[in-house]
Design a protein around this nucleic acid. Structure first.
Lengths: 187, 187
DNA sequence: AGCTTTTAGCTAACAACGTTAGCCATGTGG
DNA sequence: CCACATGGCTAACGTTGTTAGCTAAAAGCT
């Protein structure tokens, strides 16, 4: 039997890709094993359980989202930064719906959990956007939560086909960016 | 063997309650059967499958949310209506996280799907809020999506413990209402 | 090189869950 | 009082997650 040369990182990579293809709810250990060319039980040499796999996919997704948003913000400020961040975030969720779905409903076990630090990095990217506005220190946390709720809500609703009726969705998103920008500048 | 006197509605009611208690992901046919005092296969006399049950729970949840939001808006306008709607929605999601979770990721099969009509009723309740503001007709759809994204995003993030750090969450939500109100009035 | 040790794959097997088939008792309508 | 539809049951199957135990490939040591 030739070895497949797997390691935890490769399994997580394949799992995240598969989740994007078939949907997070349909990600199964057997399907993933087939994808990486191995029998199902062999996966347990690299991840502890399906829940462990899910958490690792979530960490990967949050890290990638943080990179995407952080990179998009670079070199911009104010409205440009906000628009770049929001667009990058939504683009990431729509391009990788499966791995992003892995991040919802999973709670970090403590401050040292890689999940927590990855989440902090994503928040940091959005925080950089807020630094381009003049926001009282006491309002920064609230503004950050508002931004996260808006982006998360919009992107997940769209990813789940939650917007049924007719108006153009891209246009709505641009409108939403303008709305947030105006509100943040009026503080 | 005495009869349990079940019907589809009773099964859905028990399923929704159970989902709230144990979490939607942990809702299982066996657990629900035990709860209603019946063996697992008997449930299939009332619902077609677990997916069918999930859809019915989702319809129930959307209907209840629409009632809660619609009722809260009654007799208010402008900022009062917005605040009442947002608070009612968030309270519903936090009080019934399991059944609300059943609504995410489920797509209506067509315009006559009860799921679609229940969703429309919820949207109608939020639409009533917007009528208290002077919004150009071309912006109403965008504003509605913004409101839904904001409420959905905030409520689900909180329900999943997505807000990790310290600032008070109720305070953030009130801040968010004020933010949305100011933005909508500035149109 | 040769030997030992670790490890990544395998097969076999089990538990939990969703689901179907088929039986029987309960209740309802003529 | 009897037919019959129906809501419960037990038995059984397929799928999925998981563990145990074996074996061969790689890696390390002398």
């Amino acid at each position: 039997m030739p070895r497949a040369g797997l390691d935890p990182a490769a399994v997580v990579t394949a799992g995240a890709a598969l989740a994007d293809e078939v949907g997070f709810a349909n990600l199964t250990m057997g399907l993933l094993a087939e994808r990486v060319g191995v029998r199902t039980p062999s996966l347990y040499k690299h991840v502890g359980s399906q829940e462990d796999l899910n958490r690792r996919i979530a960490v990967r997704a949050l890290g990638e989202a943080a990179d995407a948003v952080g990179g998009a913000v670079q070199g911009h400020a104010g409205r440009d930064a906000l628009a770049a961040a929001a667009r990058a975030f939504r683009a990431f969720v729509l391009a990788h719906p499966g791995r992003y779905a892995a991040t919802i409903g999973v709670e970090p076990s403590g401050p040292d959990d890689p999940l927590a630090t990855a989440g902090q990095r994503l928040l940091g990217a959005f925080m950089a956007v807020l630094r381009g506005y003049e926001i009282p220190a006491s309002d920064v946390d609230h503004a950050l939560r508002m931004l996260r709720s808006l982006c998360h809500g919009f992107a997940t609703l769209q990813a789940d086909n939650g917007f049924q009726w007719s108006a153009d969705i891209d246009e709505s998103f641009e409108w939403l960016i303008t709305f947030a920008d105006r509100g943040l500048r009026a503080m």
